[in-house]
Amino acid sequence: MARRKQIYEGKAKILFEGPEPGTIIQYFKDDATAFNNQKKAVLEGKGVLNNRISEFIMTGLERIGVPTHFIKRLNMREQLVRHVEIVPLEVVVRNYAAGSISKRLGIEEGTALPRSVIEFYFKSDELGDPLVSEEHITAFNWANPQEIDDMMAQALRVNDFLSGLFAGAGIKLVDFKIEFGRQYEGDMMRLIVADEISPDSCRLWDMETGHIMDKDRFRKDLGEVTDAYREVARRLGILRENESSGQSGPVLVSDNEK
C-alpha cells in the first residue's frame, strides 16, 4: 500500500489525505478515552464497530435529506468522507437527564426532559470542552446566527431520526453529540454533519432494563464495552443475528447480506 499523508490524529480517529481533491480518509482506532484524555485504553474491535455503525447512521441521514460528510466505507476501519472546515463546536441534544446536565442542574439521571434540549460546547481539549452560549459563539465568531439556527434545526432532525431508529431496536436515545463542517462549493457554503455518530458519541440505554450500551461503560468501569457496541450493531441489523456477542472480534454483515 502506498504511504499516505496523515493530516490529523485525534483520540479515536486518524485522518489521511483522500484519493481525490476535497476528500479525506477517516480511520477508526480502537483507542478509548474519557475525562479529557485522562483515562485511556485500547478496546479491540471498537473501531471496526464504530465505523460500521456510523456508516449505517450517516447513510440513513442522507436518505432523509440531512447532508453529511460521508461518501462510502472503504474497508473495515476506513471511510471516505468529504473535506470540510469543522465548526469548533460540539452540539449536544439531550432527551433525558444524564451526565453533566444531571450534575449541573441536580436532575436525577434518566429523568425525561420537558423537551429536547440543545447545548453547545467549545471544542478544546485544553479547556475540557466548556459549555458555551449563543452569545459566546457569535462574539468569538465561531459561527454566525444563521449557522446556529441551521445547526439547531439539523440537530433536531437528527434527533428525530435517531430516536426512531434506536426505539425500533429497543434502545432509548438518552443524548448524543454531533459536529458540523462547512463544505464549500465555489461561492456556496453549506453546513453538513461531520465526524461520526456511534456509541462513542451517544448515550444508549436498553428500553426495558436500562442496561448501558455506550461509552459510559468505559467511563464508569462497567466493563464489556465492545460487547455493548456489538449488541447495538446486532440490533440495528449490522451484525448477523446468530453471531455470539462473546466473540473476540465482531463479525459484520457484508453489503450484499444486508
Score class of each variant (00 low, 15 high):
M152W: 15
V91C: 09
L173N: 07
R182W: 08
D150P: 11
V174C: 00
E109L: 02
G99M: 15
A112M: 11
F120V: 10
D149H: 04
F161S: 03
L127H: 09
A194I: 05
R115V: 15
I148D: 01
R82S: 03
E134N: 11
G186L: 06
K172D: 10
L113N: 00
A98K: 04
L105Q: 05
R94L: 07
A98I: 03
M188Y: 13
P114G: 06
R182C: 06
R82T: 02
E135A: 09
A97M: 04
F122M: 01
F176A: 01
V117M: 11
K103I: 13
H83T: 14
W142V: 13
L162G: 07
E90N: 02
I192G: 08
G99R: 15
A112H: 12
E109V: 02
R157G: 02
I107V: 12
A153E: 13
F180N: 03
D150N: 04
N141E: 09
I192A: 03
L131C: 09
I107C: 00
R190I: 08
G164Y: 15
E78N: 10
E85I: 11
R182E: 04
L173S: 08
F166T: 12
R190P: 09
L156M: 05
M151V: 13
D175N: 02
E135W: 02
G181Y: 13
F140K: 01
S163I: 15
E179A: 04
S133G: 05
W142F: 12
Y96S: 00
P88S: 01
R182D: 04
E126R: 03
P114Y: 10
R77W: 12
E119D: 11
H83F: 12
S163P: 15
Y184D: 03
E134A: 04
Y121M: 06
I192E: 08
A143N: 02
E126P: 11
L89A: 00
G170P: 14
E78W: 13
F161E: 08
V93Y: 07
L127V: 13
M151T: 14
V158N: 08
D125P: 00
G181E: 13
H136K: 09
F122L: 08
F161G: 05
F122C: 01
Y96N: 05
D129Q: 04
R115I: 15
R94K: 09
A169K: 10
E196Q: 07
V193M: 03
R182K: 05
E185I: 10
W142K: 02
K177Q: 14
K103L: 11
I118W: 12
G186F: 01
Y96D: 02
S133P: 14
L80K: 00
I178C: 04
